[in-house]
Amino acid sequence: MKLHRLLLAPSLGTILIFMALPIALTTLYSVLTPAQHGGVIWQPSGEAYVRLMFERDIFDDTLSFNADYLQILGRSALQAGFATILCLLIGLPTAWFIATRPPAQKSLWLMLVTVPYWVNLLVRTIALLLMLRDEGPINGALQSMGLTDGPLPLAYNNFAIGLGLVSSFLPFMILPLYAAIERFDFSLLEAAYDLHASRWQAVWSVILPILRPGLIAGGLLVFIPGIGSYLAPDILGGGKTLMLGNLIGMQFQGSRNWPFGAALSTVLMSVTLIALILVARRAAREAA
């Protein structure tokens, strides 16, 4: 083996042991039988996947369609999609601003984007909750200014979850967009104006299509962790609206149905993977 291949060994080993094996194990668990108090019995069973869409009658074993879990999946996708669009609307101007600063300033701005990561996600999420609470500073300020009579319901709802997702994942949108804008050849913009494009036409016909790889990368980096997010729904949603991440968590904690939790994870992973493959194939087709 050539020496330079050894350079890859630590990361390949890490990926194998801490990513590939756990994923394989999760997939395997999803087709086993749940044990009484967590864990699995090594007996093959498709029951976990049946449960995704059907309810089994406890008396006569008949199956009836049950959309509860699909709804949770749909709700999570919707919530993540919403957060992705918000991140895009906030991230694009921000990334544009940073990418067009003089080189010496860029690194400072980029560092500021990563500042939230110096604080643990749990702490940040709880801090956000403190801000949004009925007794929090936002509601306090609104009421003391006489703008609202009572506290606005800012915490423990979908709004709070969305805000949590946006604040957690915004840098994942800004950084790939920044990289794309940084590479953007600004003479193309002059060419567009020269060829009689208005500002909006230049944005739609030149800037957005050329930034598309960055938009897609940023979108995926927000959407994928967003759809499976656990902390934001748990803390900011107050556990009232069940999201996919919490549903999966519950199977390994409270309700102790490991195969079902594993099946949910496998479905989530597969959906993500299929989406990624579709995006990659489309990008490859366009590059050809």
Partner: peptide
Amino acid sequence: MPPEDRPVNTVFQHYALFPH
């Protein structure tokens, strides 16, 4: 008058063709 309204077009030094 902005460039898009001028009856003038430019051939750029490095072409500036739209890559997409």
